[in-house]
């Protein structure tokens, strides 16, 4: 366990050193928040529902933190599979999979902390209101962090699909778009038609995104428990797939002789 913790810490230190990258992420987050704040402002004014943007910008912030914190771990795994690099790790005293996963959690954690702090400050400055009780905020953020970790796990599963597909970039993009629509990461699922929400409930994005981020304006211990329970179920399913794919991969590498 200590070796994975060391890998995690080393990659986190690398991430802290990359200040330009962190600032770039915040710049992008600020642009997204500002653009959509403008949109919700116009919609609020049009529909005489004042304060709509104050709720939805906090909601968007939580969704964007999950998206922007996630690392491109699927591309690393894809490269490892295609180049055969992973064969070099198979005889090492570390699990290739856990190594790559803990390596991706380092930058994820640093980016998450950076965006959560500066993003919250930015949104608070532009809306000057909070749609939650302040002492619920750390719990909401912790739940968002759990979502980030599971979302990265999902991307490792996408990376393992490189076993069957030559290119997984479009698939990774499609997964991100599914998060937008099935998870309501940009517009909350409350505005979607009921038939669509019923479909979304059967996808991992529903709990990873919608149930987790709507806690920002609709916090209750029951909602939190439902989000955590469903996230646990999806984690088991994704982890099961990753386990099977990893076993298959190890055999393939053995057959090809590395």
């Amino acid at each position: 366990m200590m070796k994975y913790l060391s890998i995690f810490l080393v990659s986190a230190k690398h991430s802290v050193a990359n200040k330009v990258g962190l600032c770039g992420n915040f710049f992008l987050l600020a642009i997204i928040l500002y653009a959509y704040n403008q949109l919700w402002n116009v919609i609020s004014a049009d529909s005489n529902q004042s304060g709509l943007n104050q709720i939805f910008i906090w909601y968007l912030l939580m969704g964007e933190i999950i998206i922007l914190s996630s690392t491109k771990v699927e591309r690393v795994i894809e490269d490892d599979i295609k180049s055969g690099t992973m064969a070099y790790y198979l005889n090492k005293p570390v699990s290739f999979y856990f190594m790559r996963y803990s390596e991706s959690l380092g930058p994820l954690t640093i980016t998450f902390l950076f965006l959560a702090f500066w993003g919250s400050l930015f949104v608070w400055l532009i809306t000057s209101k909070i749609p939650f009780i302040w002492y619920h905020f750390p719990i909401i953020l912790l739940n968002i962090y759990i979502s980030c970790v599971i979302y990265t796990l999902l991307y490792t599963a996408v990376g393992f699909l490189a076993l069957w597909l030559k290119e997984i970039r479009s698939l990774a993009m499609a997964v991100e778009r599914f998060a937008f629509i099935f998870g309501g990461a940009i517009f909350p699922l409350t505005i979607y038609p009921e038939w669509f929400v019923n479909i979304a409930k059967f996808t991992p994005f529903y709990s990873l995104y919608y149930l987790s981020i709507k806690l920002i304006y609709d916090f209750s211990w029951y909602n939190l428990a439902v989000a955590l329970g469903l996230n646990f179920m999806w984690t088991s399913i994704i982890a099961g797939f990753v386990y099977l794919a990893y076993r298959k991969l190890s055999k393939k590498v053995e057959v090809n002789g590395g």
Binding site: L165, S170, L171, M173, A174, R177, F178, F180, I181
Partner: peptide, 16 residues
């Protein structure tokens, strides 16, 4: 397959 995924990707955005 990837072109099809790109189409789905774009369509989801338009759907939103």
């Amino acid at each position: 397959i990837n072109t099809l995924l790109m189409i789905i990707n774009n369509m989801s955005f338009a759907f939103m």
